[in-house]
Design a protein around this nucleic acid. Structure first.
Lengths: 276, 276
DNA sequence: CTGATTCATTCCATATAATGGAACAGCGTT
DNA sequence: AACGCTGTTCCATTATATGGAATGAATCAG
């Protein structure tokens, strides 16, 4: 419908394995496991579908589902299939507008977009994935929602690699060992050794490139941002289609991206630092 | 920053009382109660603040918070304050893109916008509030996220009144009795009797108007949509600033809005009906 | 239309997880 | 250095979730 060059769909990745931070333990863990199944489902899920996906006895699952519904986290469609509840939308609206990093980065993203004219992203590292928090785009091409909140692998995105480069080296190493690499394009980094090597370069340069490693025909230049204690790492990027913007242009933007990221880091330190 | 005429902020309403569907009972209920407090907080909430807001003993609250964090539903900012977790953004992205009603309504909203040139909304009734699921807007003026997922009172919005009119009368009556009316503008409906009276008109006409009842200077024309069993009711609306669009113009659009809503209802019946 | 079968829901004794008081640790303040 | 304020950990107790079995509803075959 719209002229977005980047795929408009939600996670077409063939990687079906969940990158959960926590095990499905405890009452809460089991509850979000149910939400997770519903969220990741591609076809409408009815009760029996959930049952085989979750593997809980019917009575148990039924009560879990009931509780989720009464909390508004889950809902039943008229055709008996389950969908995520509207309460999640409410929460997300707050999660987004109340996010301090997004708030701090916002003007810098706008400025960077102003300078380059291309799409600017803000992403945060969440375990092994990058979650996009914001984007600034020239035309109202792609619908925002299709991108914000979406997760992409960290090893084949500019923001992801930038974020990894901001982690303490042993932390980064530990995460890399847990990555299940998948070739999204012919340029995708395929193993941990190659990724570690590239991260060394990224650390030295303060700049990461995605050379059509995630989506064919899309490349980007990114720089890391972080909080003082590295409990938060993320990145910003300028993304463009390679048919229109040459790699040489990206490298020219590198300084702008690095400068913008540095400015964001300074703001984070001031507004969220230990002495805030 | 942008030229949005409708307020860009999240819920400035003075109504602080929560419109919870469920009591804070059960492990899950207590967990979302914590999320709710964080979501509704206006200043940064630290552990101490949560403690007084929730009223749980420190040990208990600490574990609840820890569990929420390990599930990614909550996170700690570097300055020790809590924020909603990124997992909620991921879930919401799916809740939105996977929402059947939104999906079905989408082309009709686009067509309605094409015809009127003004902002078109899709909202769903959730207990006593309307939650906006989608909007189509001419310029990329207001950021989508500031609107989608937001909740507004049902008694002073076009979509809300339209949705109420689609409920079985006793259900509507029961909900009206629970509304805490608040005068947002001088035109806001102030009591249940007035609302019931207006709902009768809306049922007869199939059209609801918001005559600057929520935001001064903003009015809209809306029509209800629903599922066959009324487990879902909502509405669509065309919204405009009154300085630019006269009431007479809104009444001229009423037929278009009603027609669009009817088309959506037909699609819902076909795609989500009992024999789907 | 009837009977058989599958699936969803309810119930309740049991197993499990959440609770909260108390004791501990970290840190800034007096 | 001792105090007070917050946040964190521990563990016996208590409340909650669990899941097998029974019931009810819906679907399908004959």
């Amino acid at each position: 419908m719209e002229a977005g060059f980047r795929q408009d769909t939600i996670d077409r990745n063939p990687e079906k394995g969940r990158a959960r931070t926590a095990p499905d333990t405890g009452t809460l863990g089991k509850a979000v496991a149910v939400l997770d199944v519903v969220a990741r489902a591609e076809r409408p899920m009815r009760f029996r579908d959930l049952r085989e996906a979750i593997g809980q006895p019917p009575g148990t699952l039924h009560r879990q589902v009931s509780n989720l519904i009464s909390e508004g986290l889950l809902q039943v469609n008229p055709d008996q299939s389950y969908g995520l509840g509207l309460r999640l939308l409410q929460f997300a609206a707050r999660a987004w507008s109340g996010n301090r990093f997004r708030e701090i980065a916002e003007p810098h993203l706008a400025a960077l977009h102003e300078k380059t004219g291309e799409t600017v992203h803000l992403g945060v590292l969440s375990d092994l994935e990058v979650i996009y928090l914001d984007k600034v785009e020239s035309r109202q091409a792609v619908r925002m929602h299709s991108q914000i909140g979406n997760a992409s692998p960290c090893y084949c995105t500019g923001v992801g690699k930038a974020a990894l480069s901001a982690l303490p080296i042993d932390d980064a190493k530990a995460r890399i060992d847990r990555i299940a690499f998948h070739r999204h394009t012919e340029h995708t980094i395929a193993d941990g050794a190659a990724l570690s090597a590239e991260l060394a370069d990224i650390r030295a340069a303060g700049i990461a490139y995605d050379r059509e490693e995630h989506e064919p025909g899309i490349h980007c230049v990114a720089a890391p941002i972080w909080s003082h204690d590295r409990s938060f790492v993320g990145g910003i990027s300028v993304t463009a289609p390679s048919y229109r913007i040459a790699m040489a242009q990206l490298t020219q933007w590198a300084d702008d991206v690095r400068t913008a990221a540095a400015a964001i880091n300074a703001d984070i330190e001031i507004r969220l630092g230990p002495r805030a």
